[in-house]
Design a protein around this nucleic acid. Sequence first.
DNA 1: TCACATTTTAGAATGATTCCAAAACATTGA
DNA 2: TCAATGTTTTGGAATCATTCTAAAATGTGA
Lengths: 134, 134
Amino acid sequence: MSDAHSLLETAGLRITQPRLQIARTLFADGLDRHVTAEQVFARLKADGVHMALATVYNTLGHFVEAGLLRPISKPGSDASIYDTNTSSHHHFLNETTGELTDIPAGAIPLDLLPQPEDGSEIVACELVIRTRSK
Amino acid sequence: MSDAHSLLETAGLRITQPRLQIARTLFADGLDRHVTAEQVFARLKADGVHMALATVYNTLGHFVEAGLLRPISKPGSDASIYDTNTSSHHHFLNETTGELTDIPAGAIPLDLLPQPEDGSEIVACELVIRTRSK
DNA sequence: TCACATTTTAGAATGATTCCAAAACATTGA
DNA sequence: TCAATGTTTTGGAATCATTCTAAAATGTGA
């Protein structure tokens, strides 16, 4: 039983071929990644795996709902980016290069967040530090 | 001499009719706004002002460069949002409603930001707190 | 006012994402 | 193991935001 298989199982997702392939692509090596749907699609193709692009979009959406991925607040006007690191952390966004780098949550003390007025509850909190190459 | 006129002047932008119209639409009442290009276009149209949609996009882009507007890190996969409040502050994003609310910079202590490793410099820093209606 | 650079324009083009209806698939209970 | 049922997947078309293009209009400085 592969890692990907148990990952889907634990997440409460139905086990299907496409989901397994995408899970392997994203999580096989345990590295943190920032990916777009197109990038996942291209990588699958490079690995000889064919799949409809719409399936990649759907699946990434399912992964987000299931807590396997986290959408990143979008920087430029580019494509949606998904983060394989779902634990709380932040990002540097280099506006010159478009590069996105992780900042561990511990690096920024955020103990006292203001509460929303309307009675809604906080589900996540992400800081984006924009930088520019000198 | 209208407010809009001197605003453009101060910002170092050439004074043109379209820019004046958009500046008035955005800044006339001094309120803070979160707007998309389409919203500005619609509002102009409602006020009987015709202008090419591309002009709205171009102009908002120029306003950002000139420091009159600030682009907000994009929440969902929607349109780009511009903030008429260019001073440092943060946002609540209600994921249920899509609503974006200001948080004054003072409400969140962020004194010690980590420095980017690559020698680039910090130009802005924005926290997005995602909430969900209960 | 003239010449020149910058803007604006309308519409086409692009790119990301979603929608669609049909075919393939996974699951469950008999 | 099989049929019945609900879920996924598929490819292609459709949609939406945004940018591009080349021409016409406009602003500026001499």
